[in-house]
Simulated assay, not measured.
Amino acid sequence: MQAAPLPDRGIVHLAGDDTRHFLHGLLTADVAALAPGAARFAALLTPQGKIVADMLVAAVPDEDGGGILLDVPRALVDTLLAKLKLYRLRAKVTIEDRSAALAVVALWADDPAAAAPAADRLDGLLIRDPRHPRLGWRAVVPADAVPAAVAALAAIAAEPAAWEAHRIGLGVPRGGVDFVYGDTFPHEADMDQLGGVDFAKGCYVGQEVVSRMQHRGTARTRVVPVALDGFGPPPGAPVTAGELAVGTMGSSVPGRGLAMLRLDRVADAMAAGTPLLAGGIALTPQRPDWATFAWPGGTAETVR
């Protein structure tokens, strides 16, 4: 098992009698039913249904202090704090930035059937990453105890780049690189596919727009894995089919990457035999094993 610190992640802690009710009415996931020690993938949206911030929501057991931890992009912590405090009103909730005191470590194994790390050895919280079984686990530990946590979990220390390559290989988008915060719907970031939206939970900010997209099947643009001919272009590079723009490139490692693509335009290009190019580099969409949406052309190699 490998373990990599994720310095680009921040931690927000919420506590108080109204914490679960407060978050349940804001986020796309069911926070009310979240069991201690478990996590959900979720987002805070604008009223127009676009992603302000996506996050892992973890319930801290009472014996470890209780409350809810939000594992979020560190660059969005101030934005998220401002939004949460705006919505708090008179709710009995404390909201605290713990990013300086706590660190996030990703743990994963090449074998999807690998046993879970021994959580009882850890001075911190260990949760299963809820987005995909092969993403493994997240540990939230004191910021000065990362090496000790890696050793306690009997993991091999790895660099954040190794985790990025693993994530990209599974086709799981990363906000701020594979999609733009404030300009992307949950369906476009594949949150509906990766357990990030509970369509039965009732109202939350932006819920009407997200439900309408789900029931009408109007998400034509999505982040999808792509096979690359060598090194990929930088994130944001236009993807074209002939003279037609079909999307933008996201994160990549040699030979594979992620791209935000208009799937209807990709389908037309595939039918016409027109190659997709980004920065002069050829790319081929690959259907991830978790995808249930209609795939361009109906057939493609599946990423597993």
Results as ranks from 00 to 15, higher is better:
P5N: 07
P5Q: 13
G10R: 12
V12M: 06
R20E: 12
F22W: 02
L26E: 05
T28N: 10
T28K: 07
A29R: 11
A32F: 05
L34C: 06
L34P: 02
A35L: 14
A35E: 15
P36A: 07
L45Y: 00
Q48G: 09
G49I: 11
K50Y: 00
V52E: 04
A58W: 05
A59Y: 08
E63Q: 13
G65H: 10
G66F: 03
G67A: 12
I68Q: 05
P73G: 09
D78L: 06
D78Q: 15
L80Q: 05
L81T: 08
K83H: 13
L84W: 13
R88Y: 12
R90T: 13
K92F: 04
K92S: 10
T94P: 06
S99V: 06
A100W: 01
L107A: 09
A109L: 00
P112C: 02
A116P: 10
P117K: 13
A118C: 09
D120T: 14
G124N: 06
I127T: 14
I127A: 06
R128A: 13
H132N: 01
V140T: 13
D144I: 00
D144K: 02
L153G: 00
A155W: 10
A157P: 12
A161N: 05
A162D: 15
W163V: 12
R167S: 11
I168M: 13
G169D: 05
L170K: 00
P173L: 04
P173D: 04
G176A: 03
D178E: 07
F179L: 00
Y181K: 09
P186G: 02
M191R: 04
L194Y: 10
F199N: 05
V205K: 11
Q207V: 02
V209S: 04
M213D: 01
Q214G: 08
H215V: 12
T218C: 06
T218G: 06
P225M: 13
A227L: 15
A237E: 14
P238M: 09
L244H: 14
G247A: 08
P254V: 01
L258F: 01
D264H: 12
V266L: 11
A267K: 02
A269Q: 03
A269R: 04
G273A: 07
A278G: 15
D289Q: 03
W290N: 03
P296F: 06
G298A: 03
